[in-house]
């Protein structure tokens, strides 16, 4: 009797162990399943930057598929100096602007057009993400994009003595830029990118060469969920640079609200397309010749819902 009681206790004990295993099984099974699911899934890293521009130039970010991004950008005159000072209300009198429309054809290909005040220039580009930073099944440490840009100056030659030569060939009005963007989101807050760029100008309006080789460096550090601090610098290689020019250096803040991104920045460059700002600017940070600018981005969902 005692023996069978012992067996009963033992069997209940064994049963207890089985139950204990059952309870942990649910959690364990889920953990194992989710690990497997994560391993078999490629997770593309998103939100490396708040928008498709860092300050003047491109970030590695694309406009999403079927999204139209309307960009209104302004650059003012230098705060101090010839185009600044109290007389020019610290540069506000010398505003130039660019109106741009970017559109995502797919999640890895976007196109854009723009029109800038400066030389009454139209520009067009596409941005193709060749590689996308990802983890999981496909692990990719960086995003690689290719951004070719073309711009066409439509300023009437009679409007500027500098441009009389433009009368000869329409091709003189064309400028090109070819850019690669290699970037990585290192953490939630920090993203960095390199932008090797070649700009070809058919008819430079300065004493510089036709071809400019530059290496851009850029990054952002998030300051909060909806704000970030950005830096963008385009270093022109010494062998092919515009004499007397200073490399384009810009710092700025992104402020995101619902569908808008406001980008406020200080820069020494008035140009807002690669063909204009990569060759640098006569303004020098060292002499305090900096100017204020902003980009406003507003996205709209157009086309088919996916």
């Amino acid at each position: 009797m005692i023996k069978s009681l012992g067996i009963l206790v033992l069997s209940l004990f064994i049963h207890g162990i089985c139950i204990a295993q059952d309870t942990s099984d649910i959690t364990k099974m889920l953990e194992a399943e989710i690990k497997l699911a994560e391993k078999n899934k490629t997770e593309y890293i998103t939100a490396t930057f708040k928008t498709t521009r860092l300050v003047n130039g491109h970030s590695l970010e694309n406009t999403a598929k079927h999204v139209l991004d309307v960009k209104i950008s302004h650059r003012f005159g230098t705060i101090i100096g010839a185009t600044g000072g109290a007389y020019n209300i610290f540069g506000l009198d010398n505003a130039t602007m660019r109106l741009g429309f970017d559109y995502g054809i797919t999640n890895t290909l976007m196109i854009g057009i723009g029109r800038s005040t400066d030389y009454k220039t139209f520009d067009g580009f596409f941005k193709w993400k060749i590689l996308r930073q990802s983890k999981g099944k496909i692990s990719m440490p960086v995003t690689l994009s290719y951004v070719p840009t073309i711009s066409y100056e439509t300023l009437n030659p009679s409007d500027s003595v500098l441009l009389l030569d433009l009368k000869r060939y329409p091709s003189h009005r064309l400028n090109y830029s070819n850019q690669l963007i290699i970037g990585r989101k290192f953490s939630d807050g920090l993203s960095l990118q390199l932008m090797p760029t070649i700009v070809h100008r058919n008819f430079p309006h300065d004493d510089g060469p036709h071809d400019i080789y530059a290496l851009g460096l850029g990054g952002r550090q998030k300051l909060g969920k909806r704000t970030s601090f950005n830096v963008e610098y385009y270093y022109q290689l010494q062998s092919n640079r515009v004499p007397g020019s200073h490399d384009a250096l810009s710092i700025g803040f992104d402020i995101e609200t619902g569908g808008h991104v406001f980008q406020l920045h200080m820069t020494n460059s008035q140009g807002m397309t690669e063909t204009k700002f990569v060759p640098g600017s006569l303004n020098s940070w060292g002499k305090g010749e900096i100017l204020f600018g902003f980009n406003i981005s507003r996205v709209f969902n157009v086309g088919k819902k996916h």
Binding site: T23, D25, I26, L30, E33, I34, A37, K41, E43
Partner: peptide, 20 residues
């Protein structure tokens, strides 16, 4: 893509949802 496990004998169940 939500994973779930159900133990019918005990009526226990669990879900794991990947937010992304």
């Amino acid at each position: 893509e939500v994973t779930s496990v159900l133990n019918t004998s005990k009526g226990e169940f669990g879900f794991v949802v990947l937010i992304k």
